[in-house]
Design a protein around this nucleic acid. Structure first.
Length: 417
DNA sequence: CTGGGGAGGGGGCCC
DNA sequence: TGGGCCCCCTCCCCA
């Protein structure tokens, strides 16, 4: 029954659901409000958001005498939604840290809609709190304290209704996902990097991304999804998959299936659908990479990969890798360059990028004076000296030093991929 | 067409 | 286990 004393808008709701009475009582929700009940938004949050938080599968017969309670605390640094049943408990934490006016963190503009919406009451997956990366190169808009403070909160994150229009605190006080708190907050996913200077509009392929019903108009048309085009597409992919794959949407960005067989814990029934859709809109690079890596969690790698990406089910050996990977889907770019303010999803990528500014070229050619900032550049350069051309065109036999050259050649000369 | 530059992303290692 | 870092492969862009 805690209410944030610092904010007059703080509210708390207790919802008691008596499943036994659910059918007879219609909504089956008794809403008890302590404070702030004058705020209709909060009521709507619970009621409209209820299907995503605490309702039972309508197709599932109500369990007799199963009592559930949902507690929502909004307007506090931690809004907690807790659903309790006799068998399942989930906790939702919205970390409402960023109260500034960072324009990059405007989920409404991004049309976040119901990204994080449905929460599976029946989920067996355990949401695991993960600290997201902080940008060590934050442009310093003065909210670092809030972040640090929040970082101490071990709250577990899960998905809840994230309809921006229904957010209890309003958009301007919403989380700053740009700072990498994506996992901690919910599946409210988008790239703040997307909102950067370039303002590039990624036009979603309407035929590719299925958009239904209540998805905001900005959903496709006005998404600023980062510098990387593919990132934007990936994000749209995810959105599409959410719309068509309820199971995907019902789970936390991070699902750790500890002590479980990764294969058996896959969201199998929906995989075939959601991931197919997902794959359809993956750019060719990602697809080829995924194929090369025997993509997905089911691949039988020697190292156990029990940490699954909620978007594509790809398995990883550690939670950090999953978090890192999932930024592919979310487009989140927490790391910004202090020199040019370009943003990156990974710290090491940023570090590599900053060699541009420092002029550091640690990789030098032993054959000539050339120096390179990346090892791969040196490796490619060495082929100049060795004359190595390992990639031959199957059509004309012409050889190339790089696969990309060969592919380009084949596309132009032989109209193949 | 070639080669350099920059970046995205996965995997592995070390502390 | 988490975080950091590095290596590697690959891609795209551009001169």
């Amino acid at each position: 029954m805690t209410v944030d004393e610092e904010s007059g808008t703080s509210t708390q709701h207790i919802i008691m659901i008596e499943s036994a009475d659910a059918e007879a009582a219609g909504p089956g929700v008794k809403l008890e409000r302590s404070e702030g009940e004058e705020d209709p938004r909060n009521i709507r949050d619970i009621q409209s958001g209820a299907p995503s938080v605490a309702t039972e599968d309508p197709t599932t017969p109500a369990q007799p005498r199963t009592r559930r309670s949902i507690t929502e605390v909004s307007g506090t640094p931690n809004a907690v939604l807790k659903s309790e049943t006799d068998t399942k408990t989930l906790t939702v934490t919205h970390r409402l840290l960023h109260t500034g006016s960072d324009h990059r963190s405007d989920p409404e503009r991004l049309g976040l809609g119901r990204l994080g919406s449905p929460l599976a009451p029946s989920s067996e997956y355990l949401p695991v709190f993960h600290k997201s990366p902080r940008t060590g190169n934050s442009r310093g808009d003065g909210d670092g304290d809030a972040l640090d403070t929040a970082g101490d909160d071990p709250s577990c994150s899960y998905t809840t209704e994230m309809d921006p229009g229904n957010m209890p605190l309003g958009l301007d006080t919403q989380t700053d996902l740009s700072r990498g708190d994506w996992n901690r907050r919910s599946s409210c996913v988008y790239s703040e990097g997307c909102l950067d200077k370039k303002e590039e509009v990624i036009l979603a392929d309407e035929g590719t991304v299925k958009v239904e019903g209540d998805i905001p108009p900005t959903w496709n048309a006005d998404s600023h999804l980062g510098d990387g085009h593919s990132q934007g597409r990936d994000f749209l992919d995810y959105r599409g998959s959410l719309e068509t794959n309820p199971n995907v949407a019902t789970h936390s960005p991070l699902h750790v299936f500890k002590d479980r067989d990764p294969v058996s814990t896959l969201m199998a029934p929906s995989d075939s659908h959601g991931c197919v859709l997902f794959d359809r809109v993956l750019n060719s690079n990602d697809r080829s990479r995924a194929q090369a890596q025997e993509g997905g969690a089911t691949s039988g790698n020697s190292k156990e990969k029990r940490f699954l990406c909620m978007f594509c089910n790809k398995g990883f050996s550690s939670s950090q890798k999953v978090e890192r990977h999932q930024r592919v889907h979310t487009g989140e770019k927490p790391f910004s360059c202090t020199q040019c303010e370009k943003r990156f999803s990974r710290q090491d990528t940023l570090k590599r990028h900053q060699r541009i500014h420092t002029g550091e070229k640690p990789y030098s050619c032993s054959q000539c004076h050339m120096r390179f900032a990346q090892a791969g550049q040196l490796k490619m350069h060495l082929k100049v000296h060795t004359g190595e051309r390992p990639f031959a065109c199957i059509h004309c036999g012409k050889r190339f030093s790089e696969r990309s050259y060969l592919r380009l050649h084949q596309q132009k000369k032989h109209s193949t991929l």
